[in-house]
């Protein structure tokens, strides 16, 4: 009984790990595309550190440039 409970717990932990791992990959991809859709660049360099003040990120500035 105890053995089967431990085994089930082990399986549950493994499943949770697999779900979290898959979630992290999906999150990274979705995060990237959402940022892109918002008109932000993928630089992630930190806007305040950017001499362009993220003109590359802000959609209105991008349009102005065009």
């Amino acid at each position: 009984m105890l053995h089967s409970l431990l085994s089930a717990a082990g399986t549950a932990v493994s499943v949770v790990i697999a779900v979290i791992a898959a979630g992290l990959v999906v999150f990274a991809i979705v995060h990237h595309f959402v940022r892109k859709k918002q008109g932000k660049s993928g630089c992630d360099c930190g806007c305040s550190n950017c001499p362009g003040h993220c003109s590359s990120c802000l959609p209105e500035n991008k349009q102005e440039k065009k």
Partner: peptide
């Protein structure tokens, strides 16, 4: 926690 070998590998050696 008795995680499967692959799950241990994924967390320890991967993530």
């Amino acid at each position: 926690a008795g995680a499967a070998e692959w799950a241990q590998g994924l967390v320890n050696d991967g993530i």
